[in-house]
């Protein structure tokens, strides 16, 4: 499958900015299933961009300027090849108890501590109100699928209820949120049950002709002993398949925001994003 992805972002500032650095984490990860065929990026300040990496090794795109401005736009456009993926194409766990035993092992916990500990945005509180406990009778995969469905059913997708720094306490109280909140809750509950789970940031292809303003998507990946990392999208209640184009993962949103900026200015700013994912063949 071939996709054409456009990431566009526009920032306006109340007071003039006299210099800035930006770092974008919007370039899809390249692995056996995803390959970038071409890429093009530009910005309204005509600064040259450079590739780098973030702290977890994911590819970033950076710009800096010493110009004075009060509005700036960035556009990244790329063509990507993605392998057709059947998310169920793995050898299932033969022995659920054995899998749970592995989760309990010290070396397993140590290897995966990064995605087992709670982070700022994945800290669970008032669990008596909202929790999900795994059943030892089911496979871990089955448990995770159930968790996926549980969140899909119990949380309502609604924009403008939460922001990128909303804590889980608030999300649970409202039982509303956007894809980040679904993902954060999944991470927290997966980890709570001893399954290494990481937050994934990327693009979701929602069918051509979908031109409504869209943002980047967020889902999760959980590590199942003997199988490996499997992607779940609690926001849509499904497994991550061919339509899911991964950019990066981290402990939570804070490890993989699409844009980070360091600006020499004071006062507010308004940011708007537009993300478009089209499949090339149709």
């Amino acid at each position: 499958m071939e996709y054409i992805i456009t990431y566009h972002c526009e920032n306006s500032y109340k007071n003039p900015v006299s210099g800035a650095h930006w770092q974008f984490l919007v370039i899809p990860l390249e692995d056996d299933t995803q390959k970038i065929e071409s890429i093009n990026f530009e910005n309204s300040l005509l600064e040259k961009g450079e590739y780098s990496i973030n702290g977890f090794g994911f590819k970033t795109l950076r710009f800096k300027t010493s110009k004075t401005f009060s509005k700036v736009t960035f556009t990244v456009q790329l063509k990507l090849w993605k392998e057709n993926i059947n998310p169920f194409n793995f050898t299932p766990e033969t022995d659920p108890t054995g899998s749970f035993d592995i989760l309990d092992r010290l070396d397993f916990k140590t290897n995966h501590q990064t995605f087992l500990k709670s982070s700022k945005l994945t800290t669970l509180v008032n669990q008596e109100k909202f929790s999900y406990t795994f059943s030892k009778d089911l496979s871990i995969f089955q448990n995770l699928q159930n968790l996926n469905n549980f969140l899909f059913e119990h949380l309502t997708f609604e924009t403008n209820q939460t922001a990128v720094n909303t804590t889980l306490e608030e999300v649970i109280t409202k039982q509303k949120g956007v894809c980040q909140d679904f993902a954060h809750l999944f991470c927290a509950m997966g980890r709570e049950n001893g399954v290494p789970t990481r937050y994934v940031s990327g693009y979701l292809h929602q069918g051509n002709g979908y031109f409504r303003d869209s943002q980047m998507h967020a889902w999760v990946e959980s590590f199942i002993p003997t199988i490996g990392w499997i992607g779940f999208d609690p926001c849509n209640g499904i497994l991550a398949a061919t339509d899911y184009i991964k950019v990066a993962h981290g402990r939570d949103y804070n490890d993989c925001p699409p844009i980070k900026g360091v600006l020499f200015t004071s006062g507010e700013n308004v940011t708007s994003y537009k993300v478009q994912v089209e499949s090339a063949q149709q």
Binding site: H21, Q23, I53, N54, G55, T60, R62, K260, V262
Partner: peptide, 18 residues
């Protein structure tokens, strides 16, 4: 490095950690 750690740091160097 404000791009990697505390974004409000004015003491660091953007991109240093990379």
């Amino acid at each position: 490095d404000p791009l990697e750690f505390r974004a409000d740091s004015a003491l660091g160097v953007p991109g240093l950690f990379a």
